[in-house]
Simulated assay, not measured.
Amino acid sequence: MSSLKAVTDVLHSTLARAQEEREQRPGLIDGPDGPECEWAAYERARMHETVNAIRGERDLPAVPVEDIVRAEQHAVGHSDYSRKFAFYCAELAEK
């Protein structure tokens, strides 16, 4: 199994666990592009933490949350949004 696939799988699992908690975060908050669902910010934060944890294990510097926002924006609209978001975050974790 390639490293990128393995990291994608880890991040996909992280996102799936965060998505299971959506009903616990029903509010709206200020997001990068204006008001957004609280659960969306939570999921992005979990992905940011996990990407940086993986980078830390590899002695790479942390990436800013703006990089995660861009990865998420590239995934929006895809029928496989969760897998795409995980893949784009895996690329960030590996570079």
Score class of each variant (00 low, 15 high):
E21R: 08
H48P: 00
E57W: 08
F85E: 04
V65D: 15
P32G: 04
F87A: 10
Q19A: 07
S2C: 02
E36I: 04
T50P: 00
A62C: 06
D59T: 07
C37Y: 07
T14K: 02
A93F: 05
W39P: 00
A16R: 05
L28H: 03
N52M: 08
A90F: 12
E20D: 13
A6E: 14
I29R: 12
E91C: 10
G34C: 03
R70I: 07
E21S: 05
E66W: 02
V10T: 12
R83V: 06
H48V: 00
R46H: 06
A45N: 08
E91G: 12
E23Q: 03
Q24W: 01
E91T: 14
F85I: 01
E36S: 09
E38M: 02
A41Y: 01
H74E: 06
D59H: 12
E91R: 14
P61N: 13
Y42N: 02
G77E: 04
A41N: 07
L92R: 11
A90N: 07
I68Q: 09
A45K: 02
H12F: 11
F85K: 06
D67Y: 12
G31C: 06
A75T: 01
L15G: 06
Y88D: 10
A18Q: 03
K5F: 10
H78S: 10
N52A: 11
R44F: 03
H48E: 10
T50H: 11
H48I: 00
G34R: 05
M47R: 01
H48S: 09
H12G: 01
H48M: 01
A6T: 02
M47Q: 02
R17L: 08
E38G: 03
Y81H: 07
W39E: 00
C89Y: 11
A62H: 10
S3K: 10
L92D: 13
E38N: 01
D9P: 00
V10L: 11
D59L: 15
A6L: 08
D80W: 06
A93Q: 05
S3D: 12
K84S: 06
S3V: 08
V63S: 11
W39C: 01
T8R: 10
M1F: 10
V76I: 08
L92M: 08
R58N: 13
G56C: 04
V69H: 11
Q24N: 05
A18H: 02
Q24H: 06
I68H: 11
V69C: 09
G27F: 06
L4N: 08
E23C: 00
W39G: 01
E49R: 14
C37A: 10
S79Q: 14
G31M: 05
A53N: 07
L92N: 12
A40K: 03
R70A: 15
R58Y: 14
H48G: 05
V10D: 11
